[in-house]
Nucleic acid binder design. Structure first.
Length: 575
RNA sequence: CGGGCAGUAGCGCAGCUCGGUUAGCGCACUAGACUGGGGGUCUAGGGGUCGCAGGUUCAAAUCCUGUCUGCCCGACCA
């Protein structure tokens, strides 16, 4: 492609609404433009990169034995009601009504569509296992799209759905997907960390996320400093060595704590450790309220709380509501002397508190020396705490660290949630009707572009790995008006094209500095400079984007050298 | 949805406090000349309903009201 005929609208200045480097560079390099909130158009260069990634995903999925399908982007409301996700997704789905008043959602994911598709084709156990995938646009009406292409409303996603007769078969495909994902991300030049994750509203047992370490990541990952334990903070558990059991229980005592509300304030006021406190929170889920107890130095993990309460979304209600409906004084909550009946669920850390401190449910009063079962009853214990840096690893008790990550892939074992709901069945060897179980596997394709840029760039721009670079080579004649330079440039351009190398020829009549800056910004991995100095030696300069120096290479050898370098690099990325 | 900030040329911004010729600057763009190894120089140009609507006023980019959009923080994020 000749640059004089191409559309590469590079920007010198950073658009003011781009915060993170990948977003800035994607705009500056002319890959994308914003259409409206969370919606981006792709310019020619961006499309090429996206297609490269899609091709890698497709090749590896095909290689794994998965079969590509396409289901409609619009998902009928009926399907979502069958699976129960019409409610669960709620406002996250963009809904629309056709001329016949039928309601649809723009598919946020396609468990329903694919399950419904396959249900009619599945008859015998011999049809299983099978893994169906598709690559197309998904839409989620995110509350707050941000970080450029990392969190958009419309995005390209590869989603796959596998069907099995038993757990063992599901495990095989699950593991196959895990290794396939590793290959895909490696080929894109990404280092990913597989982490245990919450399976949340998807339902199901096992789940792993593929995270790219990045400061701009939206997920917090907990990692053991010694053993290999890694988990999303939503799911992470830790060891708790706090024990207080051998202290004798004392009688509870009501203490005046005028206008002393927070744990911080009360602990100073009473000269007590945070660990002696029974932190009391009231959550609302659906129409119900629940009182949550956790040790004063810990915080509640709302995802764990959701799961403990059966997956219903919990929210912290407005303070007025607590006062009105439960007659509880904010700032002085506690599990003792409750006026109205309310379910109490406690984090495991509460079990070991002896002679604890909590609010007295009376304004400006706290209790000290309260003890479980003697002063209050807990209906249920669960692990509800947020694991944080410095906690002890559940496996080996070593200190835990945390890092931020961008989620580029997610694999789930789903069980029979969807197959049961959609009444999918097949005949087993004995002729009995059975319900298959499912797995589901997603990759955020558009997000991969941003993730790659985040960790592969320098002050001059993007540094694409060869595997997903929009073009592999760019030829820059220093002075396009120079006959000799132009002749050599055109010849190399033709020769490389003839060898199926993707090559850009910068035939614009611009000063060399501008061309170099553009080439660096858009991140073409291999550059050929053609200037008088090198031509005097029948050579050109061969420069790699990721390296600072260059090599003088005889004109006659350039094509072979490039072919060699490209195959070498691509092989390395595939290993 | 709550809190904060912003909307003036394709991009980045000034002007607004304290209303008053023709709304500016840099980059980009067009034409020409010089130039030619890391975003060149000069000359001459084009491009604006000052987000939108209403109001105050002799007069509004500027003051007031409403509204839309975007960004940041939070809530949210299978």
């Amino acid at each position: 492609m000749r640059l004089s005929k191409y559309l590469i609208p590079t920007l010198k200045e950073v658009p003011s609404d781009a915060q993170i480097i990948s977003h800035q560079l994607m705009l500056r390099a002319g890959l994308i433009r914003k259409s409206s909130s969370g919606l981006y158009s792709y310019l020619p260069l961006g499309v090429r990169i996206l297609n490269k990634v899609i091709q890698i995903v497709r090749e590896e999925m095909d290689r794994s034995g998965a079969l590509e399908v396409i289901t409609p982007i619009l998902v009928p409301r009926d399907f979502l009601e069958i699976s129960g996700r019409y409610e669960i997704f709620g406002e996250n789905m963009l809904r629309t009504i056709d001329r016949h008043q039928n309601e649809y959602a723009l598919g946020p994911t396609h468990e329903e569509g694919v399950t419904n598709l396959f249900k009619h084709e599945l008859q015998s156990y011999k049809d299983l296992p099978i893994n169906l995938y598709q690559i197309h646009y998904k839409f989620r009406d995110e509350i707050r799209p941000r970080y450029g292409v990392i969190r958009t409303r419309e995005f390209v996603m590869k989603d796959a759905y596998s069907f099995h007769i038993d757990e063992q078969s599901l495990d095989e495909t699950y593991n196959m997907m895990s290794s396939t994902y590793r290959k895909i991300f490696n080929r894109c030049g990404l280092d990913t960390v597989p982490v245990k994750a919450d399976s949340g509203a998807m339902g199901g047992s096992g789940s792993e996320e593929f995270m790219v370490r990045s400061e701009v990541g939206e997920e917090t990952i907990i990692e053991c400093s010694q053993c290999g334990y890694v988990a999303n903070v939503e799911k992470a558990v830790c060891y708790d060595n706090f024990r207080n059991k051998d202290i004798p229980e004392q009688d509870r005592e009501l203490i005046d704590t005028p206008n002393v509300k927070t744990i911080e304030e009360v602990s100073k006021f009473l000269n007590k450790s945070h660990m002696d406190f029974i932190k009391t929170l009231v959550y609302q889920y659906g129409e119900n309220f629940v009182m949550v107890l956790i040790r004063g130095d810990l915080d509640v993990n709302e995802v764990k709380l959701n799961n403990a309460l059966g997956g219903v979304e919990v929210v912290l209600p407005e303070q007025e509501e607590i006062i009105q409906k439960l007659s509880l004084p904010i700032g002085f909550l506690g599990p003792v002397d409750l006026i109205k009946e309310i379910e109490i669920i406690a984090d495991n850390s509460i079990k070991d508190i002896v002679n604890g401190v909590s609010g007295a449910n009376i304004k400006d009063k706290h209790y000290i020396n309260i003890n479980i079962n003697k002063d209050f009853i807990v209906s249920r214990f669960a692990d509800l705490r947020i694991v944080k840096e410095g906690d002890q690893c559940i496996e080996c008790k070593s200190p835990i660290r945390s890092f931020k990550g961008v989620e580029v892939g997610h694999i789930f074992k789903l069980g029979d949630k969807y197959t049961k709901a959609f009444n999918v069945n097949y005949l087993d060897e004995q002729g009995n009707s059975q319900i298959p179980i499912m797995g589901t596997y997603g990759i955020g394709v558009t997000r991969i572009l941003a993730a790659v840029i985040e960790h592969s760039h320098d002050k001059d721009g993007i540094i694409w790995p060869l595997s997903i670079a929009p073009y592999q080579v760019i030829i820059i004649p220093i002075n396009w008006k120079d006959d000799q330079q132009r002749t050599v440039a055109k010849e190399l351009y033709k020769n490389l094209n003839d060898r199926n190398i993707e090559v850009l020829l910068d035939d614009r009549d611009l000063r060399p500095g501008v061309k170099f800056k553009d080439a660096d910004l858009i991140g073409i991995p291999i550059r050929i400079n053609i200037g008088d100095k090198s031509l005097a030696q029948q050579s050109v300069e061969l420069k790699l984007r990721k390296e600072s120096g260059f090599n003088l290479v005889p004109v006659k050898d350039v094509v072979d050298r490039i072919l060699g370098a490209i195959s070498e690099h691509l092989i390395k990325l595939q290993s």
